[in-house]
Design a protein around this nucleic acid. Structure first.
Length: 746
RNA sequence: UGGGGUAUAGCCAAGCGGUAAGGCAACUGGUUUUGGUCCAGUCAUUUCAGGGGUUCGAAUCCCUUUACCCCAUCCA
């Protein structure tokens, strides 16, 4: 695990340490209405990963509360994905639909408590009554129904006495809530639809907001982790669980930013469009970011999991570079898979001075991969090399075969070009070459230096193979619709030539095709008669990059100009205060902060009554008191205490640093500041004679930093002061320490 | 526009008043029978979205401005 923990793990540790839960339970709660993609992999990694790290449990629960969109087929895909990624859920797969009876009972209870009602407005009216983000909504007249009537109606809804949309059950919360989600959210709706698990047992179905929190509670989930778009729903989550007065402990919801990747779409809707519109070949098309797609392409679960770990968990909306994913799969495959040779774009080479044939023992792994295994490579007079590996008029820096530059055939001999054969159009169709008999790999006595070694196959022995090359599905980095699709995302090479051992020996299903990339024997279409390979990812290619960057012009970068907005004007009252404050010597920023906030100005003026020290008071009120006021609890101290603190500071009994510390204690415990200073012995130390030994000590313990500082890293000054202050328990007078340290460092 | 979030390098991301972690990408150089891997190194100090303030000291605390995301489905 990495050294820094993400905020979710921090929270889990806190809760465990505080004894909020004895053990933790998480859950992965997809709706079975689409195939899972790499964004789900991130969520799976988080939920199952946290459960694993803290010895808890993680459930797999299908959030199947909408019978019209869900299907068993997706349940299977979801189970496959979790299993393939290497995780196992606790017990059986759960279904929200299993809890329908319990959830219904909770609904009845809410009605009995007078906290929910049956509304009979139609869909349009409900929307209208909800108001808008700027305007409060108004409550339906049906909200006044008696508990008995509500109970009766709800029961009849369940029995199927009403048509779809005739009634809904709503929570009675607040139609003017600033959070739109809290304007009497719907709890149940009538749907005479067949559910893929409960069949026709129910004709009312709970809404997400009602079912999800209760499902979590029923399962004993402790940490309900979801994505950012549910932040607004957290209020309902809490409301429902609190309103029902449940036996603790109850779960709490925490949100993280979902995964975005460039050149990729991740929404279910867009993915569905690609599949249904036949822009790709099914849910497992290797170009898709679905788990099934990656699996079919040849990605390993290790690579996906590493990726999810590397990108981290945070709350900022972000778009990860696909290069990061590609790194992960290369990194995983490099030390694992055998190297073999496959020619994708063949160019025939006839070796005029070679007769007969031979077999070369060639290791499957390069020197830096500590694995055993080799195969026999047939070599003969006619071979294929990659068309790219020959150049009649090479550009500067070209290392491969040219009319004047010999090249090493990997594992075999050195080759020199003798003649180029072309067709009528001037295309090269064949190379005539000679080999150097004494240059055989391992026993090279030729003394010829080559710049590179290229891959090849014996024409007579090679097997024909289909190779599917994939490029990014989209041509733009932030694709929006099908117009952004890359028309060249799929290249099928029907006539690639691969060395025979790959088919006859099958040392693995994933290979590195030497110098090209990683490939996977397609699990569905591959046969020995017609081998099919999918390109997983290319090797890094610094040669291609070099030749390309030479062409493309450097991008011009521009920093966005920052727009300054207007500050809201002050009211008359505020203006009067502001002027009085500046007149009394406060700087305009502090005066402004105080003047604009009624509570702050009141506190400031009250403190001023105790001591005539406007600047010190203003500073502490505008900064520290303001912070405490932001919290929703009442202040445990008053103007008198702050005044005491100010006096101690003004008189130099304590430094401003200690004052902050004292203030914090005051805010937490409500203790008297003088007492805090007394009991904790916080009086500041200003005597240089007492401070000097501390400074010398720090210097002696950090000779490296002293050297760095003297070499010019003046930032380290703060480090020394900080260390001294820390060692003095915060009591050293920072001003004195500063002068002493700067003297000592001369 | 009301509410809820977020802002640190080209892309992710740590950091919680005292030396701006790490990964990807990029760029040097070395090793190499893969232009791969590996190794060594470079890559935020007019610097943490902008402006002000508090402090001996601010990415971090306070005020303020800006930009982006989410919320007005009987979807989840």
């Amino acid at each position: 695990m990495s050294e820094s923990k993400d905020f979710l793990r921090v929270k889990v540790e806190e809760d465990l340490k505080a004894g909020k839960y004895r053990a933790i339970t998480t859950r992965f709660p997809p709706e079975p209405n689409g195939f899972p993609h790499i964004g789900h992999a991130k969520s799976i990694g988080i939920n199952f990963g946290i459960a694993r790290d803290y010895h808890g449990k993680c459930n797999l629960r299908m959030d199947d509360t909408n019978p019209t969109t869900e299907d068993m087929r997706y349940v299977e895909a979801l189970k496959d994905a979790v299993t393939w990624l290497g995780f196992s859920w606790a017990g059986e797969v759960r279904f929200a639909s299993d809890y329908f009876p319990k959830i219904y009972d909770y609904a009845v209870q809410l009605v009995k408590m007078g906290k929910a009602y049956v509304d009979s407005l139609n869909e349009e009216e409900i929307r209208e009554y909800r108001g808008s983000v700027t305007e409060p909504g108004r409550r339906s007249v049906y909200a006044n129904r008696s508990i008995e009537e509500n109970l009766d109606l709800l029961e009849r809804m369940r029995k199927g006495e009403f048509k779809d949309g005739e009634h809904v059950l709503r929570a009675k919360i607040d139609m003017s809530a600033a959070n739109m989600k809290m304007r009497d959210p719907l709890l149940y709706r009538i749907r005479h639809a067949h559910h893929f698990r409960t069949g026709d047992e129910w004709c009312i179905y709970p809404m997400y907001d009602f079912a999800h929190c209760l499902s979590d509670y029923i399962e004993g989930v402790t940490h309900s982790i979801c994505t950012l778009e549910f932040e607004n729903n957290r209020d309902i989550y809490d409301w429902v669980l609190d309103a029902l007065d449940l036996t603790p402990p109850r779960p709490y919801q925490h949100e993280f930013a979902r995964l975005g990747m460039n050149y990729t779409v991740m929404s279910k809707r867009k993915l569905l469009e690609l599949v249904n519109g036949n822009y790709v070949n099914g849910w497992d098309d290797p170009r898709l970011p679905t788990i099934a797609g990656y699996k079919r392409r040849g990605y390993t679960p290790e690579a996906i999991n590493n990726f999810c770990e590397q990108i981290g968990i945070a709350k900022a909306n972000s778009t990860v570079d696909v290069a990061q994913l590609e790194f992960c799969i290369r990194d995983d495959l490099n030390p694992k898979v055998p190297r073999v040779m496959c020619v994708l774009d063949p160019l025939k080479v006839v070796i005029e001075n070679y007769e007969g044939e031979e077999e070369i023992d060639a290791s499957y792994y390069p020197h830096d991969v500590p694995k055993e295994g080799s195969r026999m490579l047939p070599f003969s007079r006619e071979i294929y090399i990659e068309r790219d590996d020959f150049s009649e008029n090479p550009v500067e820096g070209y290392y491969r075969l040219t009319p004047h530059q010999p090249v090493r055939l990997k594992h075999a001999y050195i080759l020199t070009c003798k003649e180029i054969l072309k067709d009528k159009n001037g295309n090269i169709v064949e190379i005539k070459a000679v080999y150097h008999p004494d240059s055989k790999s391992g026993t090279d006595m030729s003394g010829i230096k080559t710049k590179s070694a290229i891959h090849w196959v014996s024409a007579k022995h090679a097997k024909k193979a289909e190779v599917r090359l994939y490029e990014r599905l989209y041509k733009v980095d932030a694709p929006e619709n099908v117009e952004d699709l890359n028309p060249d995302s799929l290249h099928v090479i029907q006539n690639a030539f691969i060395e025979p051992a790959v088919v006859t020996e099958k040392p693995d299903v994933r290979f590195q095709f030497e110098r090209q990339g990683y490939f996977y024997a397609d699990p569905i279409d591959y046969t020995d008669e017609k081998p099919v390979f999918n390109k997983i990812v290319g090797l890094k290619d610094s040669w291609a990059k070099k030749s390309e960057t030479a062409k493309s012009a450097p991008k011009t970068e521009s920093k966005k100009a920052h727009v300054e907005g207007n500050v809201a004007p002050m009211s008359e009252e505020e203006k009067t205060r502001f002027e009085a404050y500046t007149k009394s010597g406060l700087n305009s920023e502090i005066a402004n902060t105080l003047a604009r906030d009624e509570e702050l100005s009141r506190f400031y003026e009250a403190t001023l009554l105790h001591v005539k020290s406007p600047t010190s008071i203003a500073n502490i009120v505008a900064n520290d008191v303001a912070r405490e006021l932001k919290r929703e609890v009442a202040l445990p101290f008053g103007a008198k205490e702050v005044a005491e603190l100010v006096v101690m500071m003004d008189e130099g009994v304590i430094s401003s640093k200690i004052a902050k510390q004292v203030f914090e204690t005051m805010a937490q415990t409500g203790e008297n500041p003088t007492q805090i200073v007394e009991t904790q012995g916080l009086k500041q130390i200003s005597d240089p004679a007492l401070l000097k030994p501390l400074i010398e000590d720090v210097m002696a313990k950090n000779p490296d930093n002293v050297a760095k500082y003297k070499a010019g890293n003046t930032n380290l000054f703060g480090f020394f002061v900080g260390q001294v202050l820390k060692n003095s328990g915060g009591k050293a007078n920072p001003t004195v320490v500063n002068t002493l340290v700067s003297e000592a460092l001369k």
